[in-house]
Design a protein around this nucleic acid. Structure first.
Lengths: 101, 101
DNA sequence: AATATATATGAATATAAATTCATATGAATA
DNA sequence: TATTCATATGAATTTATATTCATATATATT
């Protein structure tokens, strides 16, 4: 495996906006404008975020008329988020404190 | 759960040096100097990295004389890395290409 | 208690990543 | 084919993160 895979992948998941997009797409697939409005975030910012997510195949896109509909790769994402949640509950007592910076 | 948990956690895993440290600690627990020498990386850099990893309880530390011995929280780390590896093989054909920047 | 060894810390700097905004592209419809 | 709507792109700027280096702390040894 490419030695930068972890970096690219986890940098994606380290980004709060991309996590919000991921959360939003858990529910159902959405186009860019829908995501933008739902999150109250400017469109190009959403597009930039989606491109990064797509690079790692964390989301996929389908053209539907002039919209582009993004859907989540749940198979990968959901188990990872679950592990972190469990980890946080088990080891971090509801949040990682004491991290300066 | 704290809404920044993902950020802190994944920022840790997005860092190549910290991934190297994690890989090294898979084998066995090690003190700071051992890690530093093994990776050929300056000591304070290792210490800074370890502090971040420790913040999220991805590693834990035990004093042993004047050494501080770090060990890996395998329970959390190993399954996550495995998911990424599988993801990369399944969806990225040996590496995430086409990501500019 | 002085010295040596091991590690941590802080702050300045360097590097990387995200945001912003103007604009380009592309698909649909009048 | 001109216009509108939807999305992507690029480059400048801002913000976040990592590195570096000097030094502090802590433990052990003499």
């Amino acid at each position: 495996m490419n030695k930068n895979t972890y970096h690219i992948f986890f940098t994606n998941l380290a980004n709060p906006l991309r996590i919000k997009i991921i959360s939003s797409l858990k529910e159902k697939e959405k186009n860019v404008t829908e995501i933008s409005k739902e999150l109250g975030v400017e469109q190009s910012k959403i597009s930039h975020a989606l491109i990064k997510l797509r690079c790692c195949n964390l989301v996929e896109v389908n053209q539907k008329g002039k919209q582009r509909v993004y859907s989540l790769n749940k198979k990968t994402i959901l188990p990872i988020l679950k592990i972190i949640d469990t980890h946080a509950k088990t080891f971090c007592e509801g949040g990682c404190k004491g991290c300066k910076g």
